[in-house]
Simulated scan of single mutants.
Amino acid sequence: MVIIGILGIIAFFAFVLLIMGIVFLFLKIRKVTAIWFVSTGGAILLISLFVFSGTFLYYISQETSNGVQVEDSTTASSEDEFYEDYGDEYEELEFGAKGISSEEASVQVSKPQVQKLDERGLDKAYEISVTIKNNSSEPIYISAKDFYLYNYGKDDYPKVLKKDYFHEKIEVSKTASFKIYYKYIGKGELEVEYDNLIWHE
């Protein structure tokens, strides 16, 4: 910014010289001096404008670069905070392992399998087996849609098939086992989420 200010002052004086030279030429006085004023003032003004333009563009590019760096740093910081919160909020388990939900239920989810739903093999589905034991002091209400299946390869959540949708009440100290079927959307690494628990390979 200091350089731009200095260039501005130089350009101003060069402009004054140029104007004086033009006035002298117009009035036909001091012709040699007038020509010198015009040539010198014009040359300095032109050079100043070029230098000013280059300096200004450099300054803009530096500001843009700094802005991008700050944005990248902010984004990275936000992502780190997200994953830290994510890790604190969820307990990650391997398929087949038991986890304790926020309702104090022991939950076990099997590795998803691809199953054919009819004899002709025209319809496929992901199948998971779930076992839940209610260790709390109150009944627990479980729905098939409480379990989210995520396909990393497709970056999507397959929907629970309507014909296999259910809503079940699990009494205190009771255990329930059931299967959930999701619409098949293709191959990909799979993950199951329920409450504060996540199962993956």
Rank of each mutant, 00 (worst) to 15 (best):
E193R: 14
L18S: 04
F82N: 06
K154C: 03
A11Y: 05
D146V: 02
V114E: 03
E193I: 14
G121I: 00
Y150I: 02
P139N: 04
N151K: 03
V23F: 11
Q69C: 13
F24V: 00
F26W: 10
G5E: 12
Q62D: 12
K179M: 06
T75Y: 14
V192G: 00
T40W: 06
K162D: 14
G54E: 11
I10Y: 08
E104G: 06
K133D: 03
E94Y: 14
A125G: 00
Q108S: 09
E127S: 09
S143C: 08
K179F: 06
A144E: 05
F56C: 07
D155H: 09
M20K: 15
G54Q: 11
S65H: 12
I60K: 10
F13E: 04
S48T: 04
I128C: 00
V2M: 11
I22D: 06
D88A: 11
S129K: 13
W199V: 01
K154M: 05
D146G: 04
K28H: 06
L190K: 00
K28P: 00
V160L: 01
F82M: 07
I22V: 12
V38T: 08
Y152D: 07
G87Q: 14
Y90K: 02
T40P: 04
I44A: 04
L25F: 08
V172I: 09
E81K: 15
D146Y: 00
I35S: 10
D80A: 15
I180A: 04
F166Y: 11
F15H: 08
P158Y: 03
V130E: 03
Y58N: 14
E92M: 14
E168R: 11
G21F: 01
I140R: 05
L93G: 02
D80N: 15
S101H: 04
G5H: 12
T64R: 14
S137L: 12
F56Y: 11
Y194W: 05
K28A: 06
D85E: 12
K154G: 02
F95A: 04
E171H: 07
S129R: 12
E168C: 05
K98S: 13
V114M: 02
E63L: 15
G188P: 01
S39Y: 10
L49A: 09
I180P: 00
L161W: 07
D155V: 09
G54N: 14
D72R: 15
V16W: 08
V51I: 11
V114A: 03
V32F: 10
L46E: 05
E92S: 14
I198W: 02
T55S: 10
S73G: 10
D88M: 12
A43Y: 12
Y90S: 03
V192E: 00
I19P: 01
T175H: 02
K174S: 08
K124H: 09
D123F: 15
Y86E: 09
F24P: 00
G8M: 03
K159G: 09
E193T: 14
D123Y: 15
S101M: 02
N196I: 03
T33R: 12
S137G: 10
I198C: 00
N135Q: 11
K124S: 10
Q113T: 13
K187Q: 13
L161K: 07
T64Q: 15
I140D: 02
D123N: 15
A34C: 03
Y152T: 05
S48V: 05
S136E: 11
E104I: 11
F26D: 08
F15D: 06
G54D: 11
I170D: 01
D164L: 08
E84A: 15
T74E: 13
H167L: 15
E79F: 15
T74P: 06
D155Y: 08
L46C: 09
Y83H: 09
